[in-house]
Design a protein around this nucleic acid. Sequence first.
DNA 1: GTAATACATTGAAGTTTATCAATATGTTTC
DNA 2: GAAACATATTGATAAACTTCAATGTATTAC
Lengths: 92, 92
Amino acid sequence: MTNDDFIVKAAKALGDKNRLKIVKELAKRGTMNCSETEKLTSLAQPTMSHHIQLLVESGLVSVEKDGRTSILSLNQKNIEALTVFLGKVADA
Amino acid sequence: MTNDDFIVKAAKALGDKNRLKIVKELAKRGTMNCSETEKLTSLAQPTMSHHIQLLVESGLVSVEKDGRTSILSLNQKNIEALTVFLGKVADA
DNA sequence: GTAATACATTGAAGTTTATCAATATGTTTC
DNA sequence: GAAACATATTGATAAACTTCAATGTATTAC
């Protein structure tokens, strides 16, 4: 994946209000499992599962399996990379 | 528009490779008019016009009309706002 | 004022995305 | 091992998005 591809994918992942809500909540709590994300919105479980998959594929969110639960957290390094890119654009 | 709405809209605007290319080129050159953006890709003129409209509506890009040409530039303030948001998320 | 230039709008086609109900898979509990 | 739990997958539908050809609207140039 080129850097541009990463930017596009990550931006696309952030460009949805439900996924943004997950990201913001992860920033607040540190971690969440999938069931907890479902309580953030009124979306059905498969829909959330899909959104989470997109966030993970984008690199913004990481998953660690613990038994039957999936523990989500922010991928700080990749979010930082996106931030740095934007920072450069902001004061170009 | 709430702050979340802005983040979603701006991220969505960035989440397309052609629009990202415009933004990056604006960061490099400072300004461009619409005809110049058309040379960046192989997209048709109406398609570019549409992408530019999305960028402008998102707040990432500003337009100033000068006769028959539209002069595009980055909206540093809004890009900075997006950067700040991500920065907070990155080291949450 | 006609022609050329720069951009916007419209209408339509194809593609992608968001969403859900139903169902499947793997895991813990009893 | 049966039941409950956590998440994933599948298949379908509706909405949103990307793209273009055709056409429209200003503006400049001759």
